[in-house]
Design a protein around this nucleic acid. Structure first.
Length: 475
RNA sequence: GGCGCGUUCGUCUAGCCGGUCAGGACGCCGGCCCCUCAAGCCGGAAACGCGGGUUCGAAUCCCGCACGCGCCA
């Protein structure tokens, strides 16, 4: 029963990576990495119409960004058709599979008949039991044939699923499924388990949507005499409407979260928590902790709703946990990737980073929060309106201007002292006097700390911004 | 329609070989701090799908139902 751990990640390269499929890959990866196992990456690109080369490269890039690596592959199923066809021929020779010549019309008629009789809508196995002579005649006519796997017709098939326990199916309700199409291409139901066998996969960890296909896949293992894997069917990741996550749920792809400024460790941490928990209270975990702590036994059975808000909160936690230099690096990389104009000034980013590290949930907030450190502030209309409504604003600005003009040296602590002295002279509370100053300097009532911001903007520019605000207020 | 899986605060979850005020987290509300916003700290509202049964005692075990989702068709 115990053999080397090997898991696989079998994405279909058909587009963006949504968080549900990444969650499944992550669980595979965590499981394997935690016990010295092997990870196989295999692109299931048999849907030729929808699979693209760009999607393959894109998928690899996303996995690299996530820090999810692999030891073997990437394989492409489209490059393995010869192997599949040969294997199918062997199965036919062994009597474990057979050619089926039934036409679409015949199949539809059969289905209608069964429906009318209230019998299960499965393939009857007509060609399986057809006399050899009849089969040959059909072949001679040049009728296209599919290949079906001969499933057990009686009894039950059961698995011991790591997360669901014993799950059992009635074989009489399965019906022989197609494994090879007339054009020689394999079906998912064949290529997927066949490759798992060929690649030595020991643990099949996949979404629960695949649970119903397990008995037919198991039949292939048995036909091939292959050792059966351990199965773990993970609960679905749902959208807010409790349905399987899909594009129409809005932002659900890894790329979208990355572009919003979610860092890989935070996404990995969050995703690990959808369908799994370490204990009754731990939420924040590093990648290393996750690898060390992950077990399939603690995977939940019930589906979970993906919550972007909690992801953003957790991202904030990860951002704050970063050493300041590491945070600055993340910021820099993010701005470059986003091709932000701020990205050309790494020194300034490094200076600005400490002012915002505590305030951000996602990196994407940076330009709005700290843009004023890179150039003239963009005035937020609502904020500016508040200044306009404050009749003490001109006095506050003037008092601050006078106080700041005399500050020497220009440092946050000396600035703080000067500003507080100004408050005392004016007889106003800091919050009152600072508001217009903050808006004049940053363009918004929401900003990083005022003293540090003034320091970074510099004396001349700061005074100029106060003057500009004063002038605008006068008109 | 058949088969399968599931059901604890709005959400993620702990607890499920019977006994806890059903715990933690996000979000929400209030407060403290305070140069704004965050962060931090303090406090609050908020859950065992329903019905039976077993038991001194059930979220936990048994039976039935309902609902949701998934797969096949």
């Amino acid at each position: 029963m115990s053999r080397p751990v090997c898991v696989r990640m079998p994405p279909s390269p058909t587009g963006l990576f949504h968080v549900g499929t990444v969650r499944t890959m992550l669980f595979n990866w965590l499981f394997a990495r935690g016990r010295g196992g092997r990870v196989v990456l295999r692109f299931e690109d048999t849907d030729v119409a929808r699979s693209t080369e760009a999607a393959v490269e894109h998928a690899e890039a996303v996995l690299r960004w996530l820090g999810i690596d692999w030891d073997d592959g990437p394989y492409r199923q489209t490059q393995r058709y010869g192997i599949y066809q040969e294997a199918v021929e062997d199965l036919i020779a062994k009597g474990a599979a057979y050619r089926c010549y039934c036409t679409e019309e015949e199949l539809a008629a059969e289905r209608a008949r069964r429906q009318a009789d209230g019998r299960p809508l499965i393939y009857s196995g007509r060609c399986r039991h057809r006399p050899a002579a009849e089969l040959e005649a059909l072949a001679a006519q040049g009728r296209p044939a599919v290949v079906r796997l001969a499933l057990p017709e009686t009894g039950t098939t059961a698995i011991e699923d790591v997360v669901h326990g014993t799950v059992e199916w009635d074989n009489a309700l399965q019906g022989d499924h197609v494994i090879l199409r007339p054009d020689g291409s394999p079906t998912y139901q064949f290529a997927n388990p066949f490759d798992d066998i060929a690649m030595g996969v020991s643990h099949v960890i996949r979404g629960e949507d695949l649970l119903p296909s397990t008995p037919r896949q198991l039949a292939l293992y048995r036909a091939l005499g292959a050792p059966e894997p351990t199965f773990a069917h993970l609960p679905m990741v749902l959208g807010p409407d409790k349905r399987k996550l899909s594009k129409r749920h809005g932002a659900i792809s890894v790329e979208e979260f990355r572009d919003a400024g979610v860092i890989a460790d935070a996404l990995v941490n969050y995703l690990a928590l959808v369908g799994w928990s370490y204990d009754d209270h731990t939420t924040y975990m590093t990648r290393a902790e996750l690898v060390e702590r992950f077990t399939l036994e603690r995977v939940t059975r019930s589906p979970g709703v993906f919550d972007p808000e909690k992801l953003e909160w957790l991202n904030g936690e990860h951002l704050r946990a970063l050493p300041p230099e590491a945070f600055a690096h993340e910021l820099q990389n993010f701005l470059v990737a986003a091709s932000s104009p701020l990205a050309d000034r790494p020194e300034r980013i490094a200076e600005a980073a400490p002012l915002v590290q505590e305030k951000m949930r996602v990196l994407g907030q940076f330009p709005r929060l700290a843009g004023f450190l890179f150039g003239p502030p963009e005035r937020d209309p609502a904020s500016w309106e508040r200044v306009g409504r404050d009749e003490r604003a001109p006095a506050s600005l003037r008092a601050a201007r006078t106080a700041l003009a005399g500050v020497d040296p220009w440092r946050s602590d000396t600035i703080e002292a000067a500003l507080h002295a100004a408050c005392e002279r004016e007889g106003t509370k800091p919050r009152v006097l600072f508001m217009p100053v903050r808006v004049a300097l940053t363009g918004s009532t929401v900003s990083p700390g005022l003293y540090e911001s003034l320091e970074l903007v510099g004396r001349d520019e700061s005074l100029a911004r106060l003057d500009a605000a004063l002038a605008d207020l006068a008109t």
